[in-house]
């Protein structure tokens, strides 16, 4: 396989509150591909996202994370972002008074208001209605998620981690998220897509199945979907999956 690896998570272990949340986790992320990460609640998906982004509290871990072969372990969030890594939060922050336009422009380098318009339109948000609104409590949960994704589109990242972009999103907006994925793909962005939705999972090229902070399985979408659907939901093995079940598939 001659795919180029953009991000390599190498044997990462991380503890939070005295509990091991990521456990010798390794994965290779290929340039230009869309990778899904699935796993039950509490599997460690958001923790992995925070660790790759280098958020406060997720900087001390064993193992290493390499971006294009270079360790980013000692870089802060902004430094990683400047390499082109970004994160769309599962529950995005809200800002009193900061307009949607300014929020989107903040990450978009020398972009202009035209960039903002296009990004909002991609997510199905009318720029006339939304650009001057504040990214505050007055936006609904779904609107806030879409503004978050619009800011990602405007940023044109090299690698984006989207943490459950579909949660709290209606069917119509879901199609906009698919458009977003397509645009990111066209820009050559690499995507890590964390999701619980089988519909969203199908948009990916490959998937990783996480369980208790480790990669339980990886590969084609059908294979992961099948296993996740049949075995994970309702499973009480919690990272000690029955080898027979795993092998038996």
């Amino acid at each position: 396989m001659s795919e180029k690896t953009i991000l390599q998570v190498d044997n990462v272990s991380l503890e939070l509150g005295g509990k091991r949340i990521l456990n010798h986790l390794s994965m290779d992320i290929w340039t230009g591909h869309v990778h899904a990460i699935v796993g039950v609640n509490g599997a460690g998906k958001s923790t992995l996202a925070s660790t790759i982004m280098g958020l406060n509290g997720y900087r001390h871990f064993e193992g290493d994370i390499l971006f294009e072969g270079q360790s980013i372990k000692n870089m802060n969030v902004a430094e990683r972002a400047r390499l082109g890594i970004t994160l769309a939060w599962q529950e995005p922050a809200r800002y009193e008074g900061l307009t949607v336009e300014k929020f989107i422009l903040a990450g978009a380098g020398n972009a202009c208001s035209h960039t903002v318009e296009r990004a909002l339109q991609t997510l199905g948000l009318d720029p006339g209605k939304y650009a001057q609104r504040a990214v505050d409590r007055t936006l609904s949960g779904g609107e806030r998620k879409r503004v978050e994704l619009a800011s990602i589109v405007a940023m044109r990242p090299r690698l984006v981690i989207m943490d459950e972009p579909d949660s709290g999103i209606d069917v119509d907006a879901l199609n906009r998220i698919f458009d977003t994925l397509k645009i990111l793909r066209d820009h050559g962005s690499t995507v890590i897509l964390i999701t619980h939705s089988m519909t969203v999972l199908k948009q990916a090229d490959h998937a990783f199945l996480l369980c208790c902070g480790n990669v339980l399985d990886k590969g084609g979408i059908d294979k992961i979907e099948g296993f996740f659907g049949r075995k994970c939901q309702g499973c009480d093995h919690q990272n000690k999956p029955d080898q027979e079940e795993l092998n038996g598939e």
Binding site: T86, A108, G109
Partner: peptide
């Protein structure tokens, strides 16, 4: 709030 903006490169 801070880390979100930093994750966009600020």
């Amino acid at each position: 709030q801070l880390e979100t903006l930093m994750a966009r490169g600020l």
